[in-house]
Every structure is written in C-alpha cells, then in structure tokens.
Design a protein around this nucleic acid. Structure first.
Lengths: 192, 192, 192, 192
DNA sequence: AGCTAAGCGAGACGGTACGTCACGTCTTACA
DNA sequence: TGTAAGACGTGACGTACCGTCTCGCTTAGCT
C-alpha cells in the first residue's frame, strides 16, 4: 500500500524557487524559514516536514539548479579533464549568483552536522570521487608520480576554496590554470 | 597616568574568558551575546560598546590566547620556516580547543563583512605577509622557481583549510609535511 | 429502511470513547481533535464529518454515558422529586469523572454559539422542563406560593452551578438539601 | 537598591487598553496574545513577562476599569445594601461591554488554575466578603434567620450567574430584585 | 457477481498562534 | 562616565492544532 496524499511537488518547487530567490536577493544570512514559507506561499510546517534546516533547503535548491553542471564528462585525457574540472569549480565559486551562496553554505557547515553530512554526500563526494579516479588513472599511466590521490586532490582544489573562503576574492579561471600547472608539476616530480 | 574610570580592564578580561569558555563548551554557534554577558557578569551594553558582533568578540578572545603562537620566528632557512609554519597551522586547525573555533570563525566570515575585515587584518594578513616574504626570499635565492608568490602561498595553505572547512577532518602534521613536499616540488619546477 | 452502508458505528464509538478518556486524563482544555482522532484510530475527517467542534463531541460523549442519569422519575410528591433532582445535580457536578468536564463544557459555551445551542437543547432544557413542571404542580397544589416558575428553578439550581463554576468547589448532597430547604421556604412565603 | 529600568507604565496601559478593545470588538475567544501585542505596539515578551496567560491580562484590564464599581458602600440598612449589590451584579453581567467578557472569563477559569486563583482573590472574594458580612449583621439584628452565611450568599448570587452562564440571557435588575425577595423570605423563615 | 458510491484511515497542506530566544537599544542607579 | 542590570520593541524560531483536501481501501446495496 502506498501512503495517501503524497508530497506536493508544487509546494516543493515553490520552496526551492523562493529559497534561491531570497538567497540571491538578500543573501544566505538573511534567508529565514519564515521568509521562504511566505514567499513560496507555503506553511512553515511544510518546509520543516521535509528539510531539517535552512541549510539543507538551500543545498537542495542549489543542487536542483547546478547539480549537473558540477560534473565534467570524462575524456581519455585525464590531465585535461582535471584542468577543466578546476576551471568549472573556479567559475562556480566566482559565479555572481551561486558563488557566495556556496561559500555561505560551507560557512554554515561549520556548525550544522546534518548539513555537513548532506553537503559531503551530495557535493563534496561526487566531485571528489571523480577527481580521485582521474588522478589515479593519471598515476597508473605514469603522467604523474606515485602520490596519495586524496592529497593530490586537496592540492588542486584547496587553493580555490581557500581563496574564496578566507579572502572572499573568488578565483579566476586563470588562477585555476596556474594552480593546475604548478600542482601537476609537483605531482610529476613526486615519487613518495 | 591612570586612565581614570574609563574602560574596565576587569570587564574586558571577564568577557574574553567567558567567550572562550562558551565557545569551547557549546561551540561558536551556541554562543550568544547574552550568554557571554551573563557568564562574564557584565552588562550587555558593555560588550556592545566595545565590539560590534559576536564574531569580533571571539576573534579578540582567540587572538589574546593564540596571537603569538601563530608566527614562526624566521631563521636563515626559508623552506624550513615554511615547513614549520605549515605544521603550526595544521596543529592549530586540529587543536581540540581552537580548531573548530577557527573554522566557525571563518564560517561566520561569509556573512559578516566587519568580521571579515577584522579577520583579514589580524589573522590572515600577518601570516600571509610572513609567508609571502619567505617565498620571495626563497625565489631570489633560487630555491624555488619564478612563481607568483601569492599563488605559491595559496598552494601551501589552501589544502589545510580546504580539508578543515569542507570535510571537517583537521589536518595532521604529517599531512602538512606532505603538502609542503609536493607543493615545493611543483614550485621548484615552475619557471613561468 | 436501512441506513445503508453509511456511517460507521464502530468509528463513532471509538471517537466517543477516546474523547471521554482524553477528557478524563488530560482535561477538556488539552483535548484536541487531532488527539481524539489519533487515540480513536480514526481519520480527522471522520470527526469533522459528524461533529462541528470539539465541544459537541464531548457533549455527545457525555450524554451517551450520563444522559439517562440526569432525569428523576416523577412521583406524586413534587417537592421530594425536586429535592432528589437537586441531589442528582450535586452528585453530577461533584463527580470525579464528569464534574469538571461539565464545568469545562459550560466554560466552552461562553464562546461557542453552536455548542451553546446544543447544550441548551440536550442538557439544560430537559432538566429545566421537568423542574418547571414540578414547580408548577407544586404551586397549583398550594405547596408553594404564587411565584414565577422559571425564577424558582433558578433559585434552586443557581447556587449549585454558581459554586461549581466560580469557586471550583463542587456542591455536596448536604449543600443541595440546604438549598432546597431555604429556597422552598422562600417560595412558600412568596405570594407575588 | 532598586531594580534598574523598571516596568514601563506606558506599555502596561497600552496592553490593558488593547486587551479591552479586542475583547469588546472580537470577543474573548478571538483575543490572542499576538493580537494584543500588535495592537498595543508592544513585544509579546513584554506581555509574557508580566502576565502568565491571556485570562490574567483580561482580568487585569477588567479590574482596572470596573474594580471600584463592584463594591457597594455600606449603609445601616444591610438588606437594602444586599439588594443594591445584587442589582449591581445584574447590571454588570448584562452590561453590553463587560457582561460577556466576565462570562468568558469565568469560562476560562474552568481550565486555568492560575486564572482561577487570581479571579478568586480579586473578584470573587471581595464581593463575597462584603456579602457575607452583611448577611451576618442582618442575622445578628434578627432581620433574617439563623442560617449559614455562605449558603445565603450563594442563594442570592447563584441564580444571577446561573442564568448568565448556562442560558446566556443576562439577568435584568428586576430579576435581581425578585431573587432577593424570595431568597430573603426563605432566609427569614429559616432557623436551621 | 460485479459495479459503484459512500465512508473510511491516513496524513499533507496553508494557516494562525503559541511561548521562547536572542537581538541591539534604552534607561536607571551605583561607583 | 563607565558599568551591572535588565526592560523594551523586534523578528525568527520550531511546534501544536486548526479545518480542508486528496489519496487508495473497504464495503454495502443495487443492478
């Protein structure tokens, strides 16, 4: 038997739309559950029924719009894929609409375990997985040295996030390229 | 000259102490101005008179305890200094007492311009300055290639913060060492 | 004519039972439609389909249990019947299970017109009618003076309800007897 | 030492005024704490700080306006005073502005212990005390028989409240007079 | 025997109000 | 004048119920 009167798709979409809109217009910090409910024309309970915190609402809304855009389709050239992947990340972090939203989301992660778990599963891990696999393949093909793949991934993505989160100056595509250049040089030299 | 009955040093210290204690016991997110005032036995006004937000209170409290510990006295071996500096950062970020506090502070930065400015001036810049100078000297001495010093600094510190902020797994000293190894390898190879 | 496969008697009884139970355990104020539905294992709609408000549910439940107990079978001695009727009322109002429920119901009457009408028709009027008739007969037989019967009825029942509703000290049988004694004395003396 | 920044008289009055107005315009049942706060231009907390429930707010507001009007100045003729006192009660209960408010208040008493206690102390007892004393004096002077004074008081006031609360037909002055006539006749006859 | 329309349980929905928390401002009395 | 205390207006929190609605299901009563 199925559960009667299932979740309203209409309400869900209204909430996603409202969350994004408020986030864009007033910023994540000013976004409140009440505000989302009001703008979406929805009862607060309907939000709390399906999302535990404003962070998860925004995360969902974010992924609904940009989930697919995060991934980079694999080619045979792993290093080029990595380079493109970094560029994509830089573009996202410097996106006028989603950049500071992402930064705020990561900020909220610091004191919201549930959100942290969700972010890890749905944003961090997917990209991480792809990155690590590419590095692994590059390593096997001898394109880079014998290094810890996780560490290599940190070396690539770390600087982008560091710049975004600590200085609030989002990275440019050129910055991403330079990071790739130097990091890969280091990784080639490495033999661990 | 006695400063007359101007600002009460006693109150200041009580506030710093209370802020740290609450931050440690309940986390930055649960720390409130009211809570600090109550625990410090101080009027709320007294806090608002001297600090604009809870972030700045915590930042001050943090620096009062750990300000000196951030810097690494310079020796003649710049690369060794950089390595030690990275280790210090890793230690701080994984410190049971101050690690998550720092992460929370950076989280709060994302939606608090005043705090961001303060953090930049009193935490980010000092370390940055030192780091950049070391890299510059290393470059001049030929120890590393001809690279953008800011970018090099990001390459070193980025991974540490990335790991801390996005995965909530604070970096180990060993992790810091590995980062230095690979990053410096890359920086040596670079000539750009 | 059969009532066809319409209303479920089982659901009705479950609702009555649940209402009484909640009323007894938590009091009328804490009784909610949702609570009744849950405890009765019934959909909310099923309650709303047959009762307009929680007051009417409780009133029905109350009458189902105590409806018959309200009336006093008539004998030839009207004054004795009145006396017994007062005692019955006193017992009901001081009943550990139904006393405060009745008081709460009358409380709810004050802001629920529909409930007030229902209460009037099904509780107040039946007793009133009987009382008034008895007084009328007593008057015709000369046992009491020539008084307004409604006023006389108020004189008898008023004090009981007054005590219950304003002081929350339910009347004792002895109290009821004393009221009858004095009221009848007054009614005898009256000639108006 | 006195407590700093004491209670704001201005806020108190605004709340009293708002409560009365809402009660008059929409009835006690529709009066909410939020509504009072909004109409008074006051924070909800300010209401909750000083009153535990909406019942006590309304009770205070009621007493502020009608407290003095409840009492009947004593003369040497106790029976006349009692008669006047009953008339006053009848007038109050049938007052277009305060009658149903009082009834609602007594309704709320049934499920609000704190309110019941407050009502008892500030409304019921003062009138009761005066009434009982008058009856006692009348008894000593031989104007009425040797009866329980409390019971006598119930006999007088009971019918008025009974009529108000159970039939929602407020008593007329004439009704009050008739009650006094018959009740006193009964009390004279009594010797108990 | 099969059809169909109601009543049913479940529970999501848009709302309103709850009572609480913390915000940042203010006022008062003391030192 | 700075301070401890704490009341104030404000706004958001997360919860409880309201009364309405929409689902599938069960079942009685009519073809």
């Amino acid at each position: 038997m199925t559960t009667a009167h299932r979740r309203s798709e209409q309400a869900r979409q209204a909430i996603m739309r409202a969350a994004l809109e408020i986030c864009r217009e007033q910023g994540y910090a000013r976004l409140t559950m009440e505000g989302v409910a009001a703008k979406a024309g929805v009862g607060k309970q309907t939000i709390y029924r399906w999302w535990p915190s404003k962070g998860t609402v925004v995360l969902d809304a974010f992924l609904e719009e940009l989930g697919p855009a995060i991934e980079v389709p694999p080619t045979t050239d792993e290093l080029a894929d990595l380079r493109l992947s970094l560029r994509r990340a830089a573009e996202l972090l410097s996106h006028p609409r989603y950049g500071s939203m992402l930064a705020d989301l990561v900020g909220a992660l610091q004191h919201d375990e549930a959100l942290a778990a969700e972010f890890h599963k749905r944003v961090y891990q997917p990209v991480r997985q792809q990155t690590v696999e590419r590095i692994e393949r590059a390593r096997l093909s001898g394109a880079i040295g014998n290094v810890d793949t996780g560490l290599a991934a940190d070396l690539l993505f770390g600087p982008l996030w560091f710049r975004t989160l600590l200085t609030r100056q989002p990275p440019t595509p050129d910055y991403a390229d330079q990071i790739v250049d130097i990091a890969l040089a280091g990784l080639c030299a490495a033999t661990s």
